[in-house]
C-alpha cells in the first residue's frame, strides 16, 4: 500500500507539471464559464427553460473536464509510458504493471475532481451558481460518466501503437464530443443534423444526464442515458482489458 501511494503521489506531481493538461482541466473550463457567464449572465431565462445560463452550462463543462482527463491525459500518458518502455521497466520490479495503470486512473480522477471543485467555486462566487439536484445522485452521475469516458480513454491507450497515434485518436474523439455533445454549446442551438450526430457521441448522454440531475431531475428519469453509459463502460472497458498492450 505504501508503495502504491508513493506511486500515486509521484504520478500526481508529474501530471501537475504537464501544462497543457493543467490548462485544459483547471483553467480552460473556468475561462469558458467566465466568458459565457459574462455574455449571458445567470438570470433565469425563458430560453434556458427557466434556469440561469451558468446553472445550465456548468454540468456540461464538468463533462468537458472529464473528457480532457479521460480522453486526453490518461491515454496519452499511458501510450507514452509504453512507447518509452517505462511500463516495461516497471514490469521488471516487484510492482505489478496494473498498479501503474491504476495510479494513472486515480491521478486523473483526482485532477477531474479538482477541476470540478474550482469550476464550482468560481461559478458560485462570480455568478451565484445554483445546484437544484440531489447531492448523492450527482456524485453517482459524475462517476458513471467518468467511468464510461475513462474506459474509452483506456481503449485508446491500449490499442495505440505509440504516443503519436494515441494523440491523433484522442483529438478525433475529443473535439467532436466537446462541441457536438452539448458540453460547451447547448444542443437546442444546433440544427437537426448536428443533433443526429450528437446521438452517436457517448458524452451526449453524460451531458443530458448530468444537466437533468443538476437541475433537479432524478436518476429514474434517465434510464436510457444510464444504460448507455454503463454499456459504454462495459464494452470499451472490456475491449481495453482484452486488447491492452503492455509493450
Amino acid at each position: 500500500m505504501r508503495r502504491f501511494l508513493k506511486l500515486v503521489a509521484i504520478e500526481w506531481k508529474l501530471t501537475n507539471r504537464e501544462f497543457i493538461t493543467i490548462f485544459f482541466t483547471l483553467i480552460f473550463p473556468i475561462l469558458m464559464l467566465l466568458l459565457f457567464g459574462t455574455m449571458y449572465g445567470n438570470e433565469a431565462s425563458e430560453f434556458m427553460g427557466g434556469y440561469g445560463s451558468v446553472d445550465v452550462s456548468t454540468p456540461g463543462y464538468i463533462n468537458m473536464i472529464i473528457a480532457v482527463t479521460g480522453i486526453m491525459s490518461l491515454p496519452l500518458t499511458l501510450a507514452q509510458y509504453r512507447e518509452r518502455k517505462i511500463l516495461k521497466r516497471f514490469m521488471a520490479t516487484p510492482t505489478k504493471p496494473i498498479e501503474i495503470l491504476l495510479s494513472q486512473f486515480i491521478v486523473n480522477i483526482l485532477l477531474t475532481i479538482l477541476g470540478l471543485v474550482l469550476l464550482i467555486v468560481v461559478g458560485k462566487i462570480v455568478f451565484d451558481l445554483h445546484f437544484f439536484g440531489n447531492f448523492f445522485e450527482a456524485i453517482f452521475t459524475f462517476f458513471i460518466i467518468l467511468l464510461s469516458i475513462f474506459s474509452i480513454g483506456l481503449l485508446i491507450a491500449g490499442v495505440s501503437k505509440n504516443a503519436k497515434m494515441a494523440t491523433a485518436i484522442a483529438y478525433i474523439v475529443y473535439f467532436p464530443m466537446l462541441f457536438l455533445s452539448g458540453a460547451t454549446m447547448p444542443l437546442q442551438m444546433m440544427p437537426q443534423s448536428i443533433v443526429n450526430i450528437s446521438k452517436a457521441l457517448p458524452m451526449t448522454y453524460g451531458v443530458t444526464l448530468f444537466k437533468g440531475i443538476w437541475l433537479g431531475d432524478h436518476l429514474i428519469d434517465y434510464p436510457l442515458e444510464i444504460i448507455i453509459l454503463f454499456s459504454i463502460t462495459l464494452v470499451f472497458g472490456g475491449l481495453a482489458v482484452k486488447f491492452f498492450k503492455w509493450e
Binding site: R2, R3, K6, L7, I10, K13, L14, R17, E18, Q80, Y81, R84, K85, I86, K88, R89, A92, T93, P94, T95
Partner: peptide, 29 residues
Amino acid sequence: YNLIGVQLQETSYQDKIKVYEICELFTSM
C-alpha cells in the same frame, strides 16, 4: 525482482521526473 537489478535497453523515464523522485519511487518498490 526483489533479488535482482535490471537495466533495460533504450528505456527512458517519465517526462519531467526529477532524479530524487525516480529514486524514491524505486526505493518504495
